[in-house]
Simulated scan of single mutants.
Amino acid sequence: MRVSFVKMHGLGNDFIVLDARETALPGVLDNAAVRALADRREGIGCDQLILLESDEAADCRMRIFNQDGGEVEACGNASRAVGLLLGKPARIATAGGIIETRPDGDACSVDMGVPRFGWDAIPLAYAMDTLTMPLGWEELEQPAAVNVGNPHVVFFVEDNDATRLDTLGPIIEQDELFPERVNVNVATVENRSTIRLRVWERGAGLTRACGTGACATAVAAMRRGLTEREVTVHLPGGPLTILWDEDERITMSGPATESFRGSFEWSDYA
């Protein structure tokens, strides 16, 4: 049986979107099938695979699988892509909670909800201050921890381009302190309205853009008094605007793009 897909990206962070709202997939989307589809040489290729399903409490449910096959709670760039694909304001259920999207031309704004800062909400293996964590990994020290639907640590450094994120990212991601692993953000605050950011994404590695990482980093900078409540976060793939408003909700705004559409034979990957 052939299955249709849409290939999309948000600032270069790319996705395969499968729509199972009206027609169920012909089989189980397991870890091996996700890895096969995400493979850039023998599959379609993506950072994340997105599965849309029906949901009684929302316009649809968005399930998110990293290229290693693991299912995760949230993805900001994918939220914008799906928001554009739906083509109208929508409520989308995720494993990290319900988010709201509002498309506007080639861009989309996403209400990412309220960030969480408790050590057990990140989660961490044991209690500690999450605003300035008293630990480090080589030159990366004293991060902040934020959960924005998925777990992040944020390191503020003088020059994030000089950080060996390809080496330190996987070490931090899999540290025993983080029982569900963690996304690793390395940020440089340029002024009170601008941040430069690079991200090691849990289960995906170095990425050109990470929407939840931009949200987590902006909120961490605001909590530390480094920026105003609205900032532009510049990632390798491009900029995102992050607003943390007075009711504590995060709004992320930025572009997303449909690359192409196609279909594949389910039995070739499942």
Score class of each variant (00 low, 15 high):
residue 11 L to I: 06
residue 12 G to W: 00
residue 13 N to L: 02
residue 14 D to M: 07
residue 15 F to K: 01
residue 18 L to I: 03
residue 19 D to Q: 03
residue 20 A to F: 07
residue 22 E to P: 00
residue 22 E to D: 14
residue 23 T to S: 12
residue 23 T to V: 15
residue 23 T to F: 05
residue 24 A to W: 01
residue 25 L to H: 05
residue 27 G to D: 13
residue 27 G to N: 10
residue 27 G to Y: 10
residue 27 G to V: 05
residue 29 L to F: 02
residue 30 D to K: 08
residue 30 D to Y: 06
residue 32 A to S: 11
residue 32 A to C: 02
residue 33 A to N: 02
residue 33 A to E: 02
residue 36 A to C: 13
residue 37 L to S: 08
residue 37 L to T: 07
residue 39 D to Q: 14
residue 40 R to H: 15
residue 42 E to Q: 15
residue 44 I to F: 10
residue 46 C to N: 13
residue 46 C to H: 13
residue 47 D to M: 09
residue 49 L to S: 11
residue 50 I to T: 08
residue 52 L to D: 12
residue 54 S to T: 15
residue 55 D to Q: 14
residue 57 A to M: 14
residue 59 D to M: 09
residue 59 D to H: 11
residue 59 D to I: 10
residue 62 M to A: 06
residue 62 M to T: 10
residue 63 R to N: 13
residue 64 I to L: 11
residue 65 F to M: 02
residue 67 Q to H: 14
residue 68 D to P: 12
residue 68 D to Y: 11
residue 69 G to L: 01
residue 70 G to M: 11
residue 71 E to H: 07
residue 71 E to I: 05
residue 72 V to D: 02
residue 72 V to N: 01
residue 74 A to F: 01
residue 74 A to V: 01
residue 77 N to T: 13
residue 79 S to G: 14
residue 79 S to Y: 09
residue 81 A to I: 04
residue 82 V to F: 11
residue 83 G to S: 13
residue 84 L to H: 05
residue 85 L to C: 06
residue 85 L to K: 10
residue 85 L to G: 03
residue 87 G to C: 12
residue 88 K to P: 04
residue 88 K to V: 07
residue 90 A to M: 08
residue 90 A to F: 08
residue 93 A to H: 14
residue 95 A to Q: 14
residue 96 G to R: 00
residue 97 G to V: 02
residue 97 G to A: 04
residue 99 I to R: 04
residue 100 E to H: 15
residue 102 R to M: 14
residue 103 P to S: 05
residue 104 D to S: 15
residue 104 D to K: 09
residue 105 G to Y: 12
residue 107 A to K: 15
residue 107 A to G: 14
residue 108 C to Q: 05
residue 109 S to Y: 10
residue 110 V to N: 03
residue 110 V to A: 03
residue 112 M to R: 08
residue 112 M to T: 09
residue 112 M to C: 10
residue 113 G to T: 04
residue 115 P to C: 04
residue 116 R to G: 06
residue 116 R to P: 02
residue 117 F to Q: 05
residue 117 F to L: 13
residue 118 G to L: 11
residue 119 W to V: 05
residue 121 A to D: 13
residue 121 A to K: 10
residue 122 I to N: 02
residue 122 I to Y: 00
residue 122 I to P: 01
residue 123 P to W: 00
residue 125 A to W: 06
residue 126 Y to E: 14
residue 127 A to F: 05
residue 129 D to E: 08
residue 130 T to V: 01
residue 131 L to N: 05
residue 132 T to N: 13
residue 133 M to N: 00
residue 135 L to I: 10
residue 137 W to R: 08
residue 137 W to Y: 14
residue 138 E to Q: 13
residue 138 E to F: 06
residue 138 E to T: 06
residue 139 E to I: 01
residue 141 E to G: 07
residue 144 A to L: 01
residue 144 A to V: 00
residue 144 A to H: 00
residue 145 A to Y: 01
